Amino acid sequence: MTITAFPTRTRRPSRELPAVHGSSALAPAPLRPAPPAAAAPSSPVRAVPEGTEARGFVLYVGLGEDAAAADRIELARLVGELRALTSRLAPSAQTHAAVALAPAGAGGRDVDVVRRALGDPAVQQPAPEVDPGIVIDLTRKRVAIGDEVAPLTYREFELLQHIVLREGTTVGRCDIIDALWDADADDRPNERTIDVHVRRLRAKLGDYAEVIRTVRGAGYRFDRHADVTVLAGGPSPDRF
């Protein structure tokens, strides 16, 4: 007799929920909290005054040669990377790079040096040193060098004045003697003594000693320069 085995059917678990007895079957399902309402979009904040529009921005990058070498990067590569990033984020943006040059050994932070070099109006530019020059006041009979008054004697000022009034003309030593000393004066000098007077005058003029030039074999001469101011009012104060 042949016995045939039939496969056993595995009973799958029922997906039906188990019956619930009692009053809990009528209880409502717990409520989930409602999601918070989306905040209303805020209006953009204007960073520029009314009547103007933002057209771009400037990014100052301070990176000296030593710092760039320490970071193992060249300025050209850094510029290229920043340009590529800008192009990726804002394809419509236009870029311009300018390298700021400064004297070797200039102090201060690199970024501050860059801002000054590129004329950032927000950075106070150091006032250039202006040479106050020399003022020869013929009316008040004094010489001012900057804020200081040169301690000239009466004779030294007369000598300076005589040469200054003949601007552009070589004044001989004999002419100076005849103009500033009487013919019978006991202290009437010779030509060599005039050189001594001029040397003392130049010493008191300091950095402006060369306003009185020596013309070899002829005498002395005054030529006007940008840092020399001559003040004279009324008739010539010269003795002639």
Rank of each mutant, 00 (worst) to 15 (best):
A102V: 15
R239M: 03
R202I: 13
V123H: 07
I73N: 00
L59N: 02
L160K: 04
A117R: 07
L31V: 15
V58Q: 04
V171Y: 01
F222N: 04
A218R: 14
R77K: 05
T86K: 03
R155M: 15
R199V: 15
H162V: 06
S42T: 11
P13E: 15
A27Q: 13
D184G: 08
L63E: 01
A38E: 10
I145R: 09
H21I: 15
R15I: 12
K204R: 14
D131H: 06
V171D: 06
R213K: 15
D110C: 10
T10M: 04
A38S: 05
T10Q: 01
L89G: 02
G108Q: 07
V143D: 01
E74L: 09
A127K: 05
D207Q: 13
S24A: 14
F57D: 02
P18N: 13
E65V: 14
A226Y: 00
A90I: 11
V143I: 14
D223K: 14
K141G: 08
I73T: 15
L101Q: 07
T229Y: 00
D238C: 09
L152R: 04
L63K: 02
G119A: 10
P49S: 12
V20D: 01
L159F: 09
A37S: 08
S14D: 15
V61I: 13
I177H: 03
V143T: 11
R192M: 10
F157T: 07
L82P: 01
V149P: 00
R140D: 14
A34D: 03
G105S: 11
A27N: 09
D195R: 14
G105D: 12
R166Q: 12
Y154A: 12
A127R: 11
R77M: 10
R216Q: 13
T8A: 11
A37C: 02
R15Q: 09
G51W: 00
T214E: 08
A34Y: 00
T4A: 10
E50P: 03
A100K: 05
G119K: 03
A84W: 03
A90H: 04
G56F: 05
D195A: 13
D238V: 12
V45P: 01
G133K: 02
